[in-house]
Design a protein around this nucleic acid. Structure first.
Length: 343
DNA sequence: CCTGATTTCAGCCCGTCTGT
DNA sequence: ACAGACGGGCTGAAATCAGG
């Protein structure tokens, strides 16, 4: 068994790694002297039978290990992001990610493994400073959480080609349904630019996604930075907005950029849907100048945690992102509002 | 110019979410 | 519980591109 395979099987320890649960435990051999010849014979037969049993057990355990995927406990610093990394910085922000970190912390560490592959050309070093030895395939949020918590991350080590890495990563993210249209588009664009796939169609077939979805995602990824930055977060941009935004860009690129920059300066006043409307609407709307915006961003320490909006019937709607207001706090929140209206 | 491959687009369907 | 809105995905047709 090669060193790498042995390490994969968790039988040896790579520098910077912590062995997971011991795979095979040696059976204790208790030596007792027989007092008579028949006794010695019985003991020999019995010990031989134990040895056979132990050998059978070990054989069975080895058989189970064959083809299995071992889990290592790694320092997160040893794992570097893949070149296909598809997460926008805001995926690691906000109450959702904080709650995710809290859950990992509360359960005494990371339980569900991430998937990594050995870095090509990486040298196993015994030095003090951690040098990345693995490339992340999937589990970006989990890896980032462990990094921030300063705890080891459980990882499945897998040898994968660029194409396998890309497809696994893409499939995992799409199955979890937590990758935005724009993030997908950027990932697809990188794959095509790097020559991983010859065409959109080939990419779509490889990842088992409809070619029109790939096209929509790519259209979003090709939008100028100024347009993306006009939105409260690129994660809020929808697939179906690709067509109107691309059309606006083709029709009047100058005008679109001017509108996008203006919206960026005042984006706290607009929801993502309103940004789309403002960007794609040909008529000059006073949307940025009106004194009573339809939605106000609610921020905490510069971070958007919700919004305050007024609907078509003049009702005020407060929407806070999950995690910011627990049910136990509702009473106190209601009293605060009462105090406000009693001024 | 013709043909086949690729990309884009419009319209529809279905599942989920939200408001009543 | 129900209806309407919305988002995501699928299908088929049109437009575009590249090679012979």
């Amino acid at each position: 068994m090669s060193k790498r395979l042995a390490a994969k099987a968790g039988l040896i320890q790579l520098p910077g790694t912590v062995p997971a649960e011991p795979v095979v435990t040696r059976a204790e051999v208790v030596e007792q002297k027989a007092k008579t010849a028949p006794g010695a014979m019985m003991q020999f037969l019995s010990s031989q039978s134990d040895a056979i049993k132990e050998a059978d057990t070990l054989r069975e355990q080895i058989r189970k290990l064959e083809g299995s995927t071992p889990v290592l406990s790694l320092q997160p610093e040893l794992v570097q992001l893949s070149k296909w990394a598809n997460r926008h910085v805001s995926s690691f922000d906000g109450p959702d990610f904080q709650q995710f970190k809290d859950e990992i912390s509360a359960s005494g560490g990371n339980v569900q493994p991430i998937r990594v592959r050995p870095l090509s050309g990486a040298r196993l070093r015994t030095g003090q400073d951690p040098v990345p030895q693995f490339e992340l395939i999937y589990g970006h949020r989990r890896h980032r959480a462990c990094l921030e918590l300063g705890i080891p991350v459980m990882a499945i080590v897998d040898d994968a080609t660029d194409q396998e890495l890309f497809e696994t990563m893409e499939r995992e993210n799409r199955n979890r349904k937590n990758l935005s249209a724009w993030e997908q588009g950027c990932m697809y664009q990188r794959a095509i630019d790097e020559g991983l796939y010859g065409s959109q169609r080939k990419l779509a077939e490889a990842i088992n996604v409809d070619v029109s979805m790939v096209s929509k995602s790519l259209a979003l990824a090709r939008l100028p930075d100024a347009v993306i930055e006009a939105f409260p977060s690129p994660l809020e941009i929808q697939f179906r907005w690709a067509q109107p935004l691309s059309e606006a860009l083709q029709k009047d690129p100058e005008g679109l950029m001017v509108r996008a920059r203006a919206i960026k300066l005042a984006k706290k006043l607009l929801t993502a849907a309103q940004v789309l409307e403002a960007l794609t609407s040909s008529e000059e709307r006073p949307v940025l100048n009106r004194s009573t915006p339809t939605a106000l961003s609610i921020d905490k320490a510069g971070e958007r945690i919700g919004q305050l909006a007024m609907d078509s019937r003049g009702r005020t709607v407060v929407k806070l992102d999950a995690g910011w207001l627990k049910s136990a706090d509702l009473e106190a929140f209601a009293r605060h509002l009462e105090a406000y209206f009693s001024r």
